[in-house]
């Protein structure tokens, strides 16, 4: 019933959706490595090809993915502009004081844009196809080795999943408090920056109070159910399947390919 729809998760059933979250996390890390190992257009094209395959198999609409790119559009344009203007080298096309546009600068910027976009699209593919809950499960499972050095992995995962669970609740609450204060004549849209920030105090104070109240209630409820102590079992167990094998092989192939390209083809810039 709410105007806000939270989260990135796109609820369809697909090959990618069914993959193990651990594999997807590892894949993301591996993919990022590949993006930065690749130093030629062939390498980056290979990365992009794999990513397009992932998108095709995930059944997430392309429009949704473009929206993720839109979010970093400013960052991309800004970094590209800085790089074009300050990169020095041969083949100067244009120069003014300390700014110059060179062939190397343009190529470097193109690489940068491609890398940034690949990075963002790949990480948003992870959140589009994995629910926050299974993502935290995956992180918890991947961090298990840290338990040997007494790192509280389980507590960390719990904190993460509670935080994620509370985001929509708090957004709802914010909306409600905002409406209540609007009904009392609060104005959030006019005035200078200082006035606007001050206008949020009547929202923030009740919101913080209610967040603390909820946290306390949740803590009490967990206590009342004797949470903690013994080793906990999972309702949904993570299992590797043939899909994950396919994913793993793809990643291995990609990294090997990109590394070989780097060694034998070398830097094109």
């Amino acid at each position: 019933m709410k105007e806000v729809s939270f989260g990135q998760f796109y609820p369809v059933d697909s090959f990618i959706h069914r993959m193990d979250p651990r594999l997807k996390l590892v894949f993301l890390i591996g993919f990022i490595v590949a993006i930065f190992v690749a130093n030629s257009f062939y390498g980056l094209a290979a990365c992009a090809g794999v990513l397009i395959l992932i998108i095709a198999f995930s059944r997430v609409p392309v429009l949704k993915i473009l929206r993720a790119v839109k979010g970093i559009l400013f960052l991309v344009i800004f970094t590209a502009a800085i790089n074009i203007l300050f990169h020095t080298g041969d083949h100067v096309y244009w120069q003014w004081k300390i700014f110059c546009v060179t062939r190397g600068g343009i190529i470097f910027s193109a690489y940068l844009i491609l890398r940034l976009v690949l990075l963002v699209v790949c990480s948003s593919m992870l959140t589009y196809t994995t629910t926050p809950v299974s993502l935290t499960d995956g992180i918890e499972s991947l961090l298990t080795p840290l338990k040997w050095i007494r790192f509280p992995v389980h507590a960390l995962a719990l904190i993460m999943s509670i935080a994620l669970r509370f985001i929509p609740i708090l957004m709802d609450e914010t909306e409600r408090i905002k409406n209540a204060q609007k009904a009392r004549g609060a104005d959030f849209e006019s005035g200078g920056p200082v006035k606007r920030i001050r206008a949020f105090i009547p929202i923030l104070v009740p919101l913080l109070l209610s967040a603390f109240r909820r946290a306390e209630e949740l803590g009490d409820a967990m206590d009342a159910r004797c949470y903690g102590g013994k080793k906990r079992t999972k309702y949904k167990k993570l299992r590797f399947t043939w899909r994950d094998l396919v994913g793993f092989l793809t990643l291995a192939l990609l990294i090997t390919g990109v590394a070989l390209l780097r060694v034998y083809v070398g830097d094109i810039v």
């Binding site: 209540a180 609007k182 009904a183 004549g185 105090i201 929202i203 009740p206």
Partner: peptide, 21 residues
């Protein structure tokens, strides 16, 4: 609409959670 809101007061559910001052 602001003038309207002055004429039409609205008390939400659990209004005590909107106190802040």
């Amino acid at each position: 609409f602001r003038a309207l809101r002055k004429k039409v007061g609205m008390v939400f559910q659990y209004p005590e959670y909107q106190l802040f001052a």
